[in-house]
Design a protein around this nucleic acid. Structure first.
Lengths: 189, 189
DNA sequence: TGATTTGCCTAATAGGCCTAGGTAAATACA
DNA sequence: TGTATTTACCTAGGCCTATTAGGCAAATCA
């Protein structure tokens, strides 16, 4: 009987594509096995568990996203960098909703350490170089930016903004204006 | 054989408590049946499906949360209202992580219409009465506040802020300061 | 008290996760 | 090139969750 040529990498890749098509929560070992025309049990030679599969997809997404953000950020500073950064996240979430959902998976400490999480944190800090903030305000600002972007993308994709005017694109760009203004005039403690 | 006295309401309440104990995603029909010492199938006289159970818990959480926020907001305006509002959300999420997660469930249009979602939107707008914003900036600001609070609570509860100094409480209060400053000086388009 | 409703039961199907142990295909090696 | 080893995939089976169909007994009502 011909072999399907499974590897952890191919399974992870296929799992990521499946996630974008049907939703991250519907990525199951069984569904993935179906895609490759093999039995469920066969995947366990390559994956430790269903959780392992999900973690791998999350790590893939975090790395892809970090690459994109990094590319978007190259050569930019100030508001230009802020916008590029924010748009890179939002665009990725729109193009790859399943992967983006995977990137929100809570990782165990080992996986988190091996993830691109550190790159994301560094890049967020890099944006602030264009603004005049010192510690601990820089950390507060990093956390605020993370919250706004994550929150906005999450609410927007959940449809929370789709029931009222104006359009979300307009709000997005006004929110970026507002954040830029805030970072330029960060209130003293 | 004595009856357990199940009703949709008791099941929803117990499901909400279970969610806070073990996580919303671990609330299953089977687990709930176990708690009441009945068979899984028995719950289907009261619930349409597992999805129905989750929706009911979500509606319960949204209503409870709206009540809390409403109480917190009474008699306050300006920054005072902003802080009360934000703290009401954050405190609820900390006290009831499972219910808070349930409140993020994406509801179908029918359930959404019957939910306390409208009250939440109204209350967010109410905060802005203390600031000098007109449409469409008011809507932009509502969306920004929703994004920040949702994003912050989500990241904080996921542990994203727990690996670095300073503490999240300090950041939280500086973020509220920053939002207050931003709303008082909202940049013109 | 008898009739009706209904709450909880048993039984059974289907799907997902996962382990143990087998067979055949690919690879290494002599 | 034939043989030995590794390994990719399979069968079988156990356990968990979701859900439906149909039955009996407890509660309720006439």
């Amino acid at each position: 009987m011909a072999r399907a040529g499974l590897t952890a990498e191919r399974l992870t890749q296929a799992g990521a594509e499946l996630a974008d098509e049907v939703g991250f929560d519907k990525v199951t070992v069984a569904a993935l096995a179906r895609q490759f025309g093999v039995k469920d049990a066969s995947l366990y030679s390559h994956l430790k568990s269903s959780q392992d599969l999900k973690t791998r997809i999350a790590l893939l997404a975090l790395a892809e996203l970090a690459d994109r953000v990094s590319a978007a950020l190259a050569g930019r500073a100030g508001k230009d960098a802020l916008e590029a950064f924010a748009n890179a996240y939002r665009d990725y979430a729109r193009e790859h909703p399943g992967r983006y959902a995977a990137a929100q998976l809570r990782l165990d400490p080992d996986a988190a350490a091996a993830s691109a999480g550190g790159r994301h944190a560094q890049m967020t800090r890099a944006i602030l170089r264009g603004y005049d903030l010192t510690e601990p305000d820089q950390t507060h600002a990093v956390r605020l930016l993370g919250s706004v972007f994550h929150g906005y993308i999450s609410l927007e994709s959940g449809g929370s903004f789709s029931h009222s005017a104006p359009g979300t694109q307009e709000t997005w760009s006004r929110v970026l204006d507002a954040l830029d203004a805030l970072l330029r005039n960060w209130p003293a403690a």
